[in-house]
């Protein structure tokens, strides 16, 4: 009986039509949630790249004791579960934690911090591998032209830019799709730290599947938009070859 009245197809179709309804009606609450997700994940990705690319470059281009170990550690952190990062950042930012004085627990800033810790190893690890994948003679050529260190770095990074864009795409994907870390340090506060993924979890819990599906579709569309832009950029570079 209940199967007939509310089958999964109805739930799904309901969700899709509600999603487009919400997008078209520009529901302020939904837009706010989507905007927060986008803002937090984009800033976290850019910050992760700002620290991950230079560090990845240094690791890949210098030889030092324990380099393989360092790379292995970074590669491990590329797959760290977001909830572990969430727990660590929670304990760090907690009032009784070492960074409690910042008072940023349960704020978007805390979410950005947690996601930056997630994106950083992704960018760093993929930067290391794309620099290592460069023709080793490139560095020697730069050396023989007497290029200063900064210029050498500039050219090597430029040569691996397709790999670097891949790193940014992967990092953004990891950030926008994770729920564990921002749930723990953001608290899923309505109108303040509620992001798409945490809202989807909440609405699934409370049985509002149509709304959850709607938010899922918005998440996919946003993610698709950002990836499309980055991929077009990447293909433009590739065409030159």
């Amino acid at each position: 009986m209940w199967c007939d009245s509310m089958g999964w197809i109805e739930i799904f179709l309901d969700g899709i039509s509600e999603a487009f309804g919400l997008i078209l009606s520009s529901d302020a609450e939904i837009l706010g949630i989507a905007a927060l997700s986008l803002k937090v994940s984009m800033i976290a990705t850019l910050l992760g790249a700002a620290f991950g690319v230079p560090l990845g470059f240094l690791i890949a281009s210098r030889s030092f004791y324990g380099r393989s170990l360092t790379i292995a550690v970074i590669n491990t952190f590329m797959g760290i579960p977001p909830v572990v990062v969430g727990l660590a950042v929670y304990l760090l930012l907690s009032s009784s934690g070492p960074l409690g004085f910042l008072s940023i627990l349960y704020t978007p800033q805390a979410m950005i911090l947690a996601q930056t810790l997630l994106t950083f190893p992704v960018v760093c690890g993929l930067t290391v591998s794309s620099i290592l994948a460069l023709d080793q003679r490139l560095k020697e050529t730069l050396q023989s032209l007497s290029a200063p260190k900064l210029w050498e770095a500039f050219i090597l990074l430029r040569e691996s830019r397709i790999g670097l864009i891949t790193a940014v795409i992967a990092a953004f994907g990891a950030a926008i799709s994770e729920v564990g870390a921002i749930m723990m340090v953001g608290g899923n506060i309505l109108g303040y730290t509620r992001a798409l993924t945490t809202a989807i979890m909440l609405y699934t819990n409370t049985g509002e599947f149509a709304l959850a599906i709607a938010l899922g579709i918005i998440l996919l569309l946003l993610s698709f938009g950002v990836n499309l832009a980055l991929t077009i950029l990447q293909m433009r570079y590739r065409k030159k070859r």
Binding site: R137, S144, A147, I155
Partner: peptide, 22 residues
């Protein structure tokens, strides 16, 4: 000049101009 030279992913002009820029 190396036996199998590596050129930068840039125009011919920029490849040659590079060392003068820095």
């Amino acid at each position: 000049v190396f036996q199998n030279p590596v050129l930068f992913d840039a125009s011919v002009y920029d490849n040659v101009a590079f060392s003068l820029k820095f």
